[in-house]
Design a protein around this nucleic acid. Structure first.
Length: 423
RNA sequence: AGAGGAGUGGCAGAGUGGUCGAAUGCGGUGGUCUUGAAAACCAUUGAUCUUCACGGAUCCGGGGGUUCGAAUCCCUCCUCCUCUGCCA
């Protein structure tokens, strides 16, 4: 979440920034935070001086008791009763104010970077790069949802039987292709200096709040109510939360991690004809890269992460484009996001396969993730993450783009991982 | 899952109602000495809020309570260890 001090110092700028998200009551939201913070300080000040007085009286009593002056001690004690009840109500009030302030801050999204264009939806995202040639498909080329049936490599009906819609079963070469991609992505990230981690795929509420999925995307996650745990929508949540409440040693910066996990998304209300086959699932596999950076280096790191994602797509020989997300499509916690889309030739559609974001200090503030600078002051770090990559749509594009009359060619770079070059 | 024990600063570990944000040791940092290093010695070494500053407040697993006063007593939750049970 945003830092109150920064809100006060940059109010006008922030209002402008939030307008890009089409948040028209931004000024009021920020005013509310400032007012609550003011109230918090004033109340805290009163409470503190009362507590100081109570503390000193308590010490007096202690001293008198030691000297055996019981009567005098009782006299002082009498004075404390009123103070005590006053302090109780002041501290109740303080808790109330702080809860309200917290709530107000939770409801304000991150300030978009100045390069974020205005816009209302994904239609207003700006294409900034395009690479690769669209393949020429043979007569009668099929979309991946037909190809997977023809070759019996991914089975949606079986998934429906054992779980439900959106939980496909990968079989034979389909399963092997998926595993090959996971290993390829992990190896590439490792070569690029990311340390591999394998985190839990359920997280507690505190983790959900720290990276911003809660309260913003409550309905998007599967919630295990018996134990109050959430299935992760992305490895970003557990991996970034490894650093919750941590003061990182400056020598360890930047922190770079890669992790492979399944991801779970309820996708409530987002189904329709345009999300057939592998285009949208409730469970899918993803390799995620995460960086923790000093503020001054974070945009350089964002570029580096984008280059990494681009290199994966180059190696897989998939045509892709890069989009700069507009304010209306930008995630709640992100300051700047680049989406990568591959072209899936049979359905003639661009499919989002990666989203690379800089959250600046927005997550770090909730995480309490800091390092000590030269002056030994605690400084919030910047967090970044990106998919590298999400599997199903990559598979969709590979199947569709590389098909011919008799089968499907596997990209060269995967052969050593799959053990076969054709499906 | 049941019974018992325990959670204190970066780590180890003392502290069982009063001046304890907390002894001591290790580690870290700075210095003296040294050509340099080691050793030794000296000093320093948690976080957050607030204040221009002095200072003040809060934090001993989390939350609540008793008390003039809580690391210390009570309740509750969490976590870890030991034994028993169960199980990849």
């Amino acid at each position: 979440m945003l830092q109150v001090g920064n809100i006060i110092a940059n109010k006008e700028k922030y209002v402008e920034g939030l307008k890009k998200r089409n948040l028209n009551n931004a000024a009021e939201l920020l005013e509310e935070v400032i007012a609550l913070d003011d109230e918090r300080k004033q109340n805290q000040h009163t409470l503190d001086s009362n507590l100081a007085e109570a503390n000193s009286l308590a010490k007096q009593i202690g001293g008198l008791m030691k000297e055996g002056k019981r009567a005098e001690a009782e006299e002082v004690k009498a004075k404390t009763a009123e103070l005590k009840s006053l302090n109780k109500s002041l501290s109740d009030k303080q808790n109330e104010i702080e809860a309200k302030l917290q709530q107000a801050l939770y409801n304000i999204p991150n300030i978009p970077n100045e390069t974020v264009p205005t816009g209302n939806s994904d239609e207003d995202n700006v294409e900034i790069e395009r690479h690769g040639e669209f393949p020429t498909l043979h007569e009668g080329a099929k979309a991946h949802w037909d190809l997977i049936k023809d070759h019996d490599i991914i089975d949606f009906d079986l998934g429906i039987k054992i779980t439900g819609a959106g939980f496909p079963v990968y079989k034979g070469k389909g399963a092997r292709l998926q595993r090959a991609l996971v290993n390829f992505f992990l190896d590439e990230a490792t070569k690029a200096g990311y340390g591999e981690v394998q985190p839990p795929i359920v997280v507690n509420e505190a983790s959900g709040y720290a990276t911003g999925q809660l309260p913003d995307k409550e309905g998007q996650m599967y919630h295990i109510t018996n134990d109050d745990l959430y299935l992760i929508p992305t490895a970003e949540v557990p991996i970034t939360n490894l650093y919750r409440n941590v003061i990182v040693d400056e020598k360890e910066l930047p922190v770079k991690h890669v992790g492979f996990t399944p991801c779970f998304r309820r996708e409530a209300g987002s189904w329709g004809a345009h999300v057939r086959g592998l285009n949208r699932l409730h469970q899918f596999d993803k390799v995620e890269i995460v960086q923790i950076q000093k503020p001054e280096n974070s945009y350089e790191a964002l570029k580096e992460m984008c280059n990494h994602v681009a290199s994966l797509l180059e190696k897989l020989e998939l045509p892709y484009r890069v989009l700069r997300l507009c304010g209306g499509d930008l995630g709640f916690t992100s300051a700047l996001t680049f989406d990568f889309e591959v072209y899936s030739a049979a359905q003639e559609k661009w499919l989002e396969v990666s989203s690379v974001s800089n959250f600046e200090t927005y997550q770090a503030n909730r995480l309490k993730l800091r390092y000590k600078n030269d002056q030994k002051k605690s400084v919030l770090l910047h967090t970044l993450n990106g998919s590298a990559m999400a599997l199903p749509r990559i598979i969709a594009a590979i199947l569709e783009n590389n098909q011919d009359e008799h089968g499907i060619n596997i990209p060269q770079v995967l052969h050593s991982y799959t053990g076969f070059d054709r499906i």
